[in-house]
Design a protein around this nucleic acid. Sequence first.
DNA 1: AAGGACACCAACCGCTCTCTC
DNA 2: AGAGAGAGCGGTTGGTGTCCT
Length: 268
Amino acid sequence: MGRSPCCEKAHTNKGAWTKEEDQRLIAYIKVHGEGCWRSLPKAAGLLRCGKSCRLRWINYLRPDLKRGNFTEEEDELIIKLHALLGNKWSLIAGRLPGRTDNEIKNYWNTHIKRKLISRGIDPQTHRPINAGSQFTISSANHQGSLKNIRDNEALKQSPNSSSQDMQSNSSVIDVVERCPDLNLDIAINIAYSTDQKPFSSSTEVQKAPAVTQATTPTSVSPYFQPICLCYNLGFSKSEACSCRASSNDNQHVLRYYRPLIEEGHQTN
DNA sequence: AAGGACACCAACCGCTCTCTC
DNA sequence: AGAGAGAGCGGTTGGTGTCCT
């Protein structure tokens, strides 16, 4: 059957973008917004493939991009997120406002890999290159997170838990043990303004700006909806967890209690 | 000064996922 | 249920700049 090409390759430019092309793309998106990348080049008068336009916009032209060197804090965050998520660059980028997946991927391959190796850490496994020793857990927060995860280990015996579930749990524990200061007891919240309905659909909720630390709304808004971290970590509906609001917590914040154990994804 | 090696990063490619019909 | 289209993602490539000999 074959797959239809994403564009007429014979009539498209390739390689570096010119200033004029950039201006055309910016002007078009300013007026019409993002989306419909396939038809955008023609509509914008660009001899480019839609994918190329999308990439150029996302990685280079978007106004909210942060330019300049990565800070030490960003470095450490990337390392920790990579330990947790692996090469899920888009998810990692979601936790670093103003940075793109491509930028982080490049930065990882050119800087952080070497940095970790120089520290004697394998950049893929995040384990010491020549050590099989066990790690100890130092952070109190972290111990709480680990306990939650370990509690789930008990559920491994449950007939409802799949082997994939077990694997996921093991890997999370593994990461927690290797990154003692990585606080997995994360709560997230959606940025919103009181006079604005923040999100109207689940799709928009998933595209919410990443917020890693809990922020407490000053008043209860009818529009406010709790959001589960697992969505932001990229789990699909079929890989649902059963996160819930703790009675001690703000009810609009879900905590990362039980990854990938129970069926049915609850967001409230 | 020349040119080879290396580093960086924008852009491309091919695959997968999601949505619609 | 399954096919097709569109969008997104991660791996890889290639051009360019910088450093080193």
